[in-house]
């Protein structure tokens, strides 16, 4: 039986970089647990028979091809001296 506790929900929000508005958390918890309850039959599944997949990833030749409008892909307003500006990442450095 799977159950998402409020603590797990917080952890999931952290993993997914989502921040649920106050009111939604409660409902989300209910919905998710309702879904999990309904689909918990999944835990009964046995190991399936081996199926062979001969399909392989095709490999690309190492030949450079520049994207035509490469310099326009990142909007000018986001750039500073050609570098993409992002708000500081507080967590990483002291």
């Amino acid at each position: 039986m799977f159950n998402i506790s409020p603590e797990i929900l917080k952890h999931l929000e952290e993993l997914a970089q989502l921040e649920l508005p106050e009111g939604l958390e409660e409902k989300m918890l209910q919905d998710l647990n309702h879904i999990l309850g309904t689909f918990q039959i999944i835990s009964r599944v046995e190991v399936p028979p081996e199926t062979t997949t001969a399909f392989s990833s095709p490999l690309r030749e190492d030949e450079p091809k520049s994207f035509e409008n490469a310099s326009q892909l990142l909007g000018q307003s986001r750039l500073q001296d050609g570098l993409l500006k992002v708000k500081p990442v507080l967590e990483e450095e002291d």
Binding site: S71, L83, L84
Partner: peptide, 29 residues
Amino acid sequence: NTKTKMFCSCPTEGLDVPNTRVCPVCLGY
């Protein structure tokens, strides 16, 4: 030191001008 990137055909040379060796694939479009 391949001539192109791992998962797209962008050249791996001439990287000195920032954000010019890019395409929708390696920008995660």
